[in-house]
Amino acid sequence: MIDFGSDRPVHRQLADIIRADIAAGRLKPGQALPSETRLMQQYELGRVAVRQALGVLRSEGLVVTVKREGSYVRPQVPLQRVVIAGPAEVAARMPSPDERKEFDIPEGVPVFVLSEAGRRKRILPADRTILAWPKAADSD
């Protein structure tokens, strides 16, 4: 429940509750969250606080919001393993609006920018990419 006497803002408390429900599996990937109106009634909050809570969860990549439909638990995406064969630089940053659209990256999810010698830079969504380097042979 929401603790109105707490120093923690109510929208953060609501985000914590929904996040815990997602982590515990009470809200499953692809499942609709309760409507803003339902959340307002259930937790005795105003619309602004509910929208702020959903914004926090969107920025964490946990939920997606579809205009005129509502908010949903973000579906699981398959992980892609990228093996880096040679020397490389990896930088993390937030994607541009065009990159978000091209790679279907939700708000709040960063990208890896992979620069390898002799190859074009690659943009890899961080929420579905595992970067791996080959293991070096033991030097006994």
Score class of each variant (00 low, 15 high):
residue 73 V to N: 04
residue 80 Q to V: 11
residue 35 S to E: 05
residue 2 I to R: 11
residue 12 R to S: 06
residue 11 H to E: 05
residue 2 I to N: 02
residue 13 Q to V: 05
residue 30 G to M: 09
residue 93 R to D: 11
residue 127 D to C: 06
residue 46 G to F: 00
residue 54 L to S: 07
residue 15 A to T: 00
residue 35 S to G: 09
residue 124 L to Q: 02
residue 28 K to T: 14
residue 52 Q to R: 12
residue 27 L to A: 04
residue 28 K to C: 05
residue 116 E to R: 09
residue 24 A to M: 10
residue 38 R to M: 15
residue 120 R to K: 11
residue 72 Y to P: 01
residue 100 R to D: 05
residue 51 R to W: 07
residue 102 E to N: 02
residue 133 W to P: 01
residue 74 R to N: 01
residue 115 S to Y: 07
residue 89 E to L: 00
residue 65 T to N: 04
residue 93 R to A: 10
residue 127 D to S: 01
residue 16 D to A: 10
residue 116 E to L: 04
residue 95 P to D: 13
residue 105 I to P: 02
residue 79 L to K: 09
residue 140 D to V: 13
residue 115 S to D: 09
residue 1 M to P: 03
residue 124 L to W: 09
residue 139 S to Q: 12
residue 139 S to A: 15
residue 115 S to L: 05
residue 111 V to H: 02
residue 95 P to N: 14
residue 109 V to L: 00
residue 123 I to Y: 03
residue 10 V to K: 04
residue 139 S to N: 13
residue 134 P to K: 12
residue 65 T to Q: 02
residue 67 K to T: 15
residue 43 Y to D: 00
residue 38 R to N: 14
residue 110 P to L: 01
residue 119 R to I: 03
residue 42 Q to M: 15
residue 74 R to K: 15
residue 29 P to R: 04
residue 13 Q to G: 03
residue 52 Q to H: 09
residue 29 P to T: 02
